[in-house]
Design a protein around this nucleic acid. Sequence first.
DNA 1: GCCAACGTTGGC
DNA 2: GCCAACGTTGGC
Length: 145
Amino acid sequence: MSFWLLKSEGSCYSIDNLKRDGRTDWTGVRNYQARNYLREMRVGDRCLFYHSNGTPAEPSGVYGIAEVASAPHPDPTATDPKDEHYDPKREWVSVEMSFVRKLARPVSLEELKKDPDLRSMLVCRPGQRLSVMPVEARHFKKIGR
DNA sequence: GCCAACGTTGGC
DNA sequence: GCCAACGTTGGC
């Protein structure tokens, strides 16, 4: 099993939205490297659900756990002319995600950076803007335990 | 709102 | 293929 980190603006689609929906198609990824990671996903892989663009009240960080619930497939929003991410000329990919749980306590980016075990995570790297990135098993286990 | 870090685009 | 301009992301 592989581990991943999914980034979403908390104000746009949060872990609470995923909890409400139970399951959602993770669409709209329009970056080749992120797409390549989506293509590597397999059913049962676990994801850290990260909120970006945080506020002082709700800082950026990991807020929950999601699980890959389908094989990667063509992103339906890429061929939907009404979608803001409409881009039919290129091959974009999405996967279904299901809700697993919220963290009892969110782990903020600040805490990740302070923790000697966790600060090597990709998400702690300055300028890291990928919305999908791999996570080491040891990092996942420490955060998602 | 600012700005650094990227990725993408397009002229040449 | 180079690279400047531009757009976007996301921490602060």
